[in-house]
Design a protein around this nucleic acid. Sequence first.
DNA 1: TCTTTTTGGTTCGGTAACGAACTAAAAGAA
DNA 2: TTCTTTTAGTTCGTTACCGAACCAAAAAGA
Lengths: 142, 142
Amino acid sequence: MKLRTNGIVFQVAELRDNAYEHVSRELRRLGLNDLAPSHGLILITLYREKALSLKDLSIRINKKKSSTTELVDKLIRLGYVEKTASSDDQRVKLVRLTQKSLSHKDDFKELSDNVNGRLYQGFTAEDKRELMRLLNKALANY
Amino acid sequence: MKLRTNGIVFQVAELRDNAYEHVSRELRRLGLNDLAPSHGLILITLYREKALSLKDLSIRINKKKSSTTELVDKLIRLGYVEKTASSDDQRVKLVRLTQKSLSHKDDFKELSDNVNGRLYQGFTAEDKRELMRLLNKALANY
DNA sequence: TCTTTTTGGTTCGGTAACGAACTAAAAGAA
DNA sequence: TTCTTTTAGTTCGTTACCGAACCAAAAAGA
């Protein structure tokens, strides 16, 4: 089969869009109907790092700070996280999980595995390593 | 350096976002301030394929038909494309370029080269082939 | 100390994209 | 031919995301 080597950005974008669609389906399957992929990413990040400032969170999820404020505010409205002022810096607000989201931890582990696993279907360990290497190499160009 | 092999979807998404940001900057640099990456993709597609129905166009750019209608309507409003009813099927509307967009053909060729070239910076021919192979393999999983 | 600059966060207006509901034309079944 | 189903496209309400302007606290300079 013929392999095009131009239009690489479009291929990356298409893959992202397909994967994100899959994330949305998985969220719906878990009954988390009103969450978008980015909300899920915030929760997954917080399972790992417990408490993060909005700034650090925005860096982790690769979104602008205004977007992060809005995403977090929605998660607060839905009861998944809470925002508390930091004691040593009055500007900083720390975001952390609630009981509600902690109870979904296993769901998100499963979701993450499903989503990454699907992209990787049929990949050898070497394929995975190689794809990750090339993506990191490309990411370093920005 | 350590190479993580999980979180692949997030890496893909980050790469896409960085590349799209680059596209937006390039569009601004060319004075095409009110165009988003998707508009550019529509024009690039039409340079190649001359006239396309909204349905076929939506497949090419990987967007839903309602989104495609809206993207095209904006391009019409700005004078870059026109929409004409097909003669043999009254439902179909064909989208084609105008003089204005034809005059920008070289700009878009350059933009496309810049954008793909940047992602590929430092890549050997073998790297490029390998990345494209792995992306296609992943895309086949959806 | 007092002033200026930087930094963390929010607000607001605008846009791309979506899904659902809809219209009209074409194709298929009867 | 007439009825039903499929297909192409649009409309509309909603959402994620952004940039710009803004506020307040902290840090840096004077």
